[in-house]
Design a protein around this nucleic acid. Structure first.
Length: 471
DNA sequence: CTGGGGATGGGGCCC
DNA sequence: GGGGCCCCATCCCCA
């Protein structure tokens, strides 16, 4: 803990960026405060380890943890709720038990409460986050989210291609401030734990250390008599922090509200190297997502347990939001809306989807013109009375009358049939090099721009501003 | 500006 | 557990 205190002071000193004499004063001041808080917390931690003055027993899957109710009260919304109910009787030790996370996970949580050090790894982050959600420890949730985000580096989920376009070829050196960082993350994902070692040379870990010290102070300063906002919620209701919410963890509706009317245009460029970089980054993202799924605890939440329900329905709780599902597979599917994983790319337009059925639906409606309805007059058409018309990457049907009226050139049906009988087109997932013939099978009758825009040579790049289009 | 329709995405649930 | 279907909500485009 002395290490943390010393480092916290150093960090505060280095972060000011003020003239030397001011820095010295501020360093001195921060050092005292942090040192005092750390000393107090260390004392409490020592007491806990020696089981001195512990007035709260926590049983986790049979393993007993002793702690101080004041500390737990100040650290966890769940314990605030629990302990505030029994506040009248302070003489009796409080006991509670958990079966929804492991003793190891609670050890991490408890160590964080008493030391400010969160021992996260890729193997425990999901369960720690789930437990933190359960215990209503929003700061821990936030740290876990940042940790996961650092691991996955897919914060640009919506655009999908934003981080993919950050290859060295896409942006000139120094063209964007975040270029180097994002590019590094997209191409070489460092071990997550490295971000969490208390190495003062790393800005990111420094930030967390300062946060943790602030948190310690907050815990100690908290007015135990005043009810906290989260007390208004039942323990199973998760209260996610509004601040520092990673973009990738926001539900779709929220993202859409924020991004409404701001859809950015994409331009398409041909570059085999960039396409390979894209493929590599995507495959790394998918791999990380798989690792994340693999670490999902068997039980990440139980609904009804705290309502004294005699038959609590077992459900899987999303660690990112309050959503619960009955099946683990459904949770995995749901998690894609948080992780941004889109394993199903459309080979025709490169648009990516979270589910195969969505890709299929998209392909059938957009590229195959399966709907037997005239796009212009909306009348039902048959294979005989209607023809398929091309418009860029899209295909749709028009009745012969409307075709004659508009002067459109219809598309021979055999070209369409070739596409409809090509399941590989739909099933081509990341990393699978497409056969050139297969890839173009549906393009048989298409025009030049289609051929140019299709295939592995594509790179979809987000266009920052209109001037980008001129390049 | 507004309403309708298309496209998309997410949840529940069956096979 | 994966695939698939159905349903619904939301967003966007267009008349």
């Amino acid at each position: 803990m002395a290490m943390v205190t010393e480092m916290g002071a150093n960090l505060a000193y280095r972060a000011t960026g003020e003239p030397n004499h001011l820095q010295a004063q501020r360093w001195y001041h921060t050092d005292i405060t942090a040192d005092h808080q750390s000393y107090l917390l260390k004392q409490l931690d020592n007491q806990r380890r020696q089981e001195l003055f512990c007035d709260c027993n926590v049983l986790v899957e049979g393993q007993l943890f002793k702690a101080h109710r004041n500390v737990l009260f100040g650290s966890s919304g769940y314990f605030r709720m629990l302990l505030s109910h029994g506040a009248d009787d302070n003489a009796e030790p409080v006991s509670t038990s958990f079966e929804v996370f492991s003793p190891d996970t609670f050890t991490v949580i408890l160590d964080f409460i008493y030391s400010g050090q969160l021992d996260l790894s890729s193997h425990n982050v999901i369960e720690v986050m789930s437990a933190a959600s359960y215990l209503q420890m929003n700061n821990v949730i936030s740290y876990c989210k940042d940790f996961i985000k650092s691991s996955l580096e897919i914060s640009a989920k919506e655009d999908d291609v934003r981080y993919l376009s950050l290859s060295e070829n896409s942006y000139p050196q120094g063209g964007r401030e975040d270029n180097a960082i994002d590019h590094q993350a997209a191409t070489s994902i460092s071990p997550p734990s490295a971000l969490w070692t208390h190495d003062s040379s790393r800005p990111q870990s420094s930030r967390y250390l300062v946060k943790e010290l602030d948190l310690d102070a907050a815990v100690l300063k908290q007015d135990l008599s005043s009810p906290q906002p989260s007390q208004q919620h039942s323990p199973e209701v998760e209260v996610l922090p509004d601040a520092a919410e990673p973009q990738f963890a926001r539900p779709r509706a929220e993202r859409r509200r924020k991004g409404a009317g701001k859809r950015k245009p994409y331009c398409m460029r041909s570059s085999t190297d960039e396409a390979l970089a894209i493929q590599e980054a995507r495959s790394q993202t998918a791999q990380k997502a798989d690792e994340l799924y693999a670490t999902l605890p068997t039980i990440v939440g139980v609904v009804g347990l705290f309502n004294k329900d005699p038959n609590p329905s077992m459900r899987f709780k999303c660690p990112f939001c309050t959503h619960t599902v009955k099946r683990k597979a459904d949770l995995k599917r749901h998690l894609r809306c948080h992780t941004g994983e889109r394993p199903y790319p459309c080979q025709a337009c490169n648009k990516r989807f979270t589910r195969l059925e969505h890709l299929r639906s998209h392909f059938e409606t957009i590229h195959q013109a399966r709907k037997l309805v005239c796009r212009k007059c909306k009348r039902q058409v048959t294979e005989q009375s209607g023809r398929v018309v091309c418009e860029g990457l899209r295909r749709y049907r028009m009745c012969t009358e409307c075709i004659q009226e508009t002067g459109c050139e219809d598309l021979p049906i055999d070209g369409l049939e070739g596409a409809s009988e090509e399941p590989a087109l739909l099933l081509g997932v990341d990393g699978e090099e497409e056969d050139g013939d297969t890839q173009r099978s549906w393009l048989v009758t298409d025009d030049d721009d289609l051929a140019e825009d299709s295939g592995a040579d594509l790179i979809i790049q987000e266009v920052e501003d209109s001037d980008e289009e001129l390049q």
